[in-house]
């Protein structure tokens, strides 16, 4: 569907995208994640035909997105990162306008219904909630009846319920035959919906593959943590598979290799009669891969999500 070969984007001296290659297959949800300024949007804009590549080749269903732009926009739906709309425009009006831009648009009434926006035609876009506005952006992206959709930071700023609704919608759209490229900096989002994922960092793409492949490739540690009054952690350090033991206040965190460590730690706690509470086992996830790649190590002294709340 999409083939990117040695794509490079340059802004003056700055190389925003550096020799990136990957492909996106038909009817999959492909995630591109990375920190701010990693080159995600620049990469996607080259595929969308909004930006010219410095060098490298991009092809979207056989078309060159820069040269065949206008042809491509008939089969491509785009949602840009934080686009706004004209002041005082109504939902129905902007939908009608976008419908008139394409040769064979989907009746937008249907799309509004799927996105739970029916009955909002007369509403001013400015009166919609953040989630509704993002849904409208998807409606506009789907009006051309595209085969590929690009969604850039779709759920940024949405509440958790709206985010989960969005994810359900994406999965439904894939079932209807759509190929989706999703740019995000939320790892949970990518794990929830993406078939394959690419991680970008400083213009490069160090990992591409299915979520479990990407996680597996990095052989990261499982993390076991619990609250305890235990003073000396020497016993834990000696256990098989344990890599490191850290302590933050009264929470002890053990990093280890796989499930054998988990069992060893549990047995150790039981056999020695060590008190423990709020035990948590966290297998390596995309977030860990990501933090590892961008050079941040979530070791014993860095806070875990559950501890942040206590502070």
């Amino acid at each position: 569907m999409i083939a990117v070969d040695a794509l490079t984007v340059q802004y003056g001296e700055l190389r925003a995208v550096d020799q990136v290659s990957f492909s996106v297959f038909e009817q999959e949800i492909f995630g591109i994640v990375g920190p701010n300024g990693a080159g995600k949007t620049s990469t996607v804009e080259c595929i969308e035909g909004l930006r010219r590549a410095h060098s490298g080749k991009v092809s979207v269903s056989g078309l060159d997105p820069w040269k065949d732009r206008k042809k491509l926009y008939e089969v491509m739906g785009v949602q840009l990162q934080d686009t706004a709309y004209q002041d005082q425009v109504r939902v129905g009006e902007i939908c009608a306008l976008f419908s008139s831009l394409y040769r064979s648009p989907v009746p937008y009434g249907e799309l509004l219904e799927i996105m739970q926006l029916s009955g909002k035609e007369k509403a001013f876009v400015s009166s919609l909630s953040g989630g509704q506005r993002q849904k409208l952006a998807i409606v506009l992206a789907l009006i051309p009846n595209p085969r590929i959709a690009f969604l850039d930071e779709l759920t940024t700023g949405l509440d958790p319920r709206a985010r989960h609704q969005m994810w359900d919608l994406l999965l439904q759209l894939r079932e209807r035959g759509l190929t989706i490229v999703l740019v995000s900096h939320y790892m949970d989002e990518v794990e929830a919906v993406c078939d394959r994922v690419a991680i970008m960092d400083r213009g490069r793409m160090p990992a591409v593959g299915s979520v479990s492949e990407v996680i597996g490739r990095f052989a990261l540690h499982t993390e076991i943590s619990f609250r305890s009054s235990l003073e000396r952690t020497g016993g834990l350090e000696a256990l098989p598979g344990v890599v490191s033991v850290g302590r933050k206040r009264n929470r002890i965190t053990v990093q280890g290799r796989g499930d054998e460590t988990v069992l060893a730690v549990l047995e150790h706690l039981r056999d020695r009669g060590i008190d423990y509470a709020a035990l948590a086992v966290k297998p390596p996830d995309l977030e860990a891969v990501f933090l590892n790649l961008v050079g941040y190590s979530p070791s014993g002294e860095s806070p875990r999500a559950d501890e942040k709340e206590v502070r």
Binding site: V78, L80, Y102, P144
Partner: peptide, 17 residues
């Protein structure tokens, strides 16, 4: 200027118009 700042012009760039 507003249409440029709100990326409305850019949004239209990604359409056949």
């Amino acid at each position: 200027c507003q249409y440029r700042e709100k990326k409305i012009l850019k949004r239209f760039q990604a359409t056949p118009l």
